[in-house]
Design a protein around this nucleic acid. Sequence first.
DNA 1: AGATAAGCGAGACGGTACGTCGTGTCTTAGC
DNA 2: GCTAAGACACGACGTACCGTCTCGCTTATCT
Lengths: 190, 190, 190, 190
Amino acid sequence: MIETKRRGGRPRSEQARQAVLHAVDDLLLEVGYAAMTMKGIAVRAGVGRQTVYRWWSTKAEILFEACVDDAEEELAVAPARTRLAEVTSYLDALMRFLAYSPAGAGYRALLAAAEHDPAVKQLIATKDVLRDSARAVLHRIAPHRPAGDHAIDLLIGPTFFWIMSGRDPAQLDIDELARSFFHGFGSEEP
Amino acid sequence: MIETKRRGGRPRSEQARQAVLHAVDDLLLEVGYAAMTMKGIAVRAGVGRQTVYRWWSTKAEILFEACVDDAEEELAVAPARTRLAEVTSYLDALMRFLAYSPAGAGYRALLAAAEHDPAVKQLIATKDVLRDSARAVLHRIAPHRPAGDHAIDLLIGPTFFWIMSGRDPAQLDIDELARSFFHGFGSEEP
Amino acid sequence: MIETKRRGGRPRSEQARQAVLHAVDDLLLEVGYAAMTMKGIAVRAGVGRQTVYRWWSTKAEILFEACVDDAEEELAVAPARTRLAEVTSYLDALMRFLAYSPAGAGYRALLAAAEHDPAVKQLIATKDVLRDSARAVLHRIAPHRPAGDHAIDLLIGPTFFWIMSGRDPAQLDIDELARSFFHGFGSEEP
Amino acid sequence: MIETKRRGGRPRSEQARQAVLHAVDDLLLEVGYAAMTMKGIAVRAGVGRQTVYRWWSTKAEILFEACVDDAEEELAVAPARTRLAEVTSYLDALMRFLAYSPAGAGYRALLAAAEHDPAVKQLIATKDVLRDSARAVLHRIAPHRPAGDHAIDLLIGPTFFWIMSGRDPAQLDIDELARSFFHGFGSEEP
DNA sequence: AGATAAGCGAGACGGTACGTCGTGTCTTAGC
DNA sequence: GCTAAGACACGACGTACCGTCTCGCTTATCT
């Protein structure tokens, strides 16, 4: 039996769990990650503080649980006709995720928190949604290639840097980026 | 004259200023950005808390002032014989800065803080050391090109993403990255 | 039932309350009222600062709660054989209270603080231990009189002024004061 | 020569001295003794902080200098026809001084501060305006008596206690108090 | 007349208490 | 035995005032 041992007692309230996850989603957009507190989450969810601490250690854990599923879904793009279209479509999804999606906001907050806290770094390493999504795309457009990290970084890096350095997402030229992915800086000889 | 207006009053103590900047440098390495507090900085610097608040609003501001000069210096690479060597050399400096340099640790902490605080985002936007350094390199290897943001992102992005997503810096293949910068994902047709 | 409403939540810690009251008692004697701080009280009591602020607003409130019971007890004198003996005995208790008793030191500090802070003035007005004690004595020696404020001031005033103006308590002639209370300044015609 | 030794240097600014004394007077009424700060006094007087500290150690010293002359003057009553009138007139002046006069407010603040600070106690002991004024009255109405402390306390005490315990000054029966000063609590035998 | 010296307003200095807030733990009553 | 409520010890927050110091300047007396 995989079922966890339970010897009586009130079972965990799924309602409380959902309330906490939604509270985190809401608070992230309303006040931002830094101003989001465990106390605030509990109050917003209408839940006791101990109930929060019983199931999660930090706000990062809650946020991770709250946004990882959405993130995976948003980064999974449908196959396209050409390889260029496939990459373009993926980069578009990536940009939208990082720049506009609530789940993406959560992910960015977690990445930032990871920079300040090794525990968070370890947490998000358990499910690398960004690299996984890119790997899937690369596997489709070049099934005979190993799809190593190198290609993944080439694919994600420029868009990632654009967003993370605070540039306007609307001014990112996805098409040009997709072309450069295949052709590089230019035709000139290095 | 650029001279600051002074109508009496004790002048600012350069000694106190240096003590605070050094304290921030030290504390960043010793306890990390998250555990660094304004109070801790003041105590470590042997300075009154009001003196810190008088000249800086947040620890981010202090850290920015403490590491921006070093960052600029570390990212300025000497010209190389070939364009490939130039890029390789730059990517190496970039990787070392982001992954190993104390100034780079400060910069990463600031980037992360910017994700949580718009004020910090604005602060680091006043002096984009990363983009500026890449622009300088690109100007040398392709003087006839405008050196737009697109090329900058292609150059920095992959390395930046590698480091920021927590990968081992030692396993980053700088040479391959430099080649790909010129040639793209590969010879295959999109 | 007078019972306070309680719908869950950890109950107030009587231990913490006592610790705070004792800390105030101790600190008043050790460092004096002026040097006594909310922070110092909390530390001395081994209690969080929030716990102090949760139940009291100012050090004056704590001190009031800490010494009002003792004050009442010390000012309640046993009935004596003659009216003169009764008054003498009361004035002696009053002098000892104001000049030597720890509770009296607290009361003097509160009277002084009331002079600087209307809130304290209002606080000590809720339980006028001095006037109450005098009223009790006057009621015993002259049950047929209304025991108005006038007589109370005649009774307490001289001793009170002697102590509050910093004179040596030992040189106060209680017997003479008691006699004067009945006979006034002297036999001379006004 | 009593003149202080001075071998050159700018003389003390009488204008600054007056500004400080007036600032203290004003601030005492506006914000009260407790909220009055050395910094606030300096700012209000338009004077450097060091200038205040150069001539006075504490706000109590300034206040003492600012109100002692007025106090003496206000407590000096003109001779009256009868001894009863003399005492009544004095008690009235005493009540007005303690309850309504700005100088009296300063004096009450100093008395209160003395309760918290021995230095202030010592300061106001150098010039006991209350006892001095009462002694003068007693000397006039009973020149053949030594005018010891006992009579002074009988005279001042009741009014002093009335005011200091926060009673409404308007409800103090000066005439009754004056009569009682001569006759005591009543005709009953102790 | 020039030097010397002390007072002046301004304001930064190292400290420390303020009252508030968030932390993670605990102890209730209620379901 | 999980829940909501809320008190607990702890410590950082940013502000205010402490008393001291260091500026440039002014105003006097003493060579």
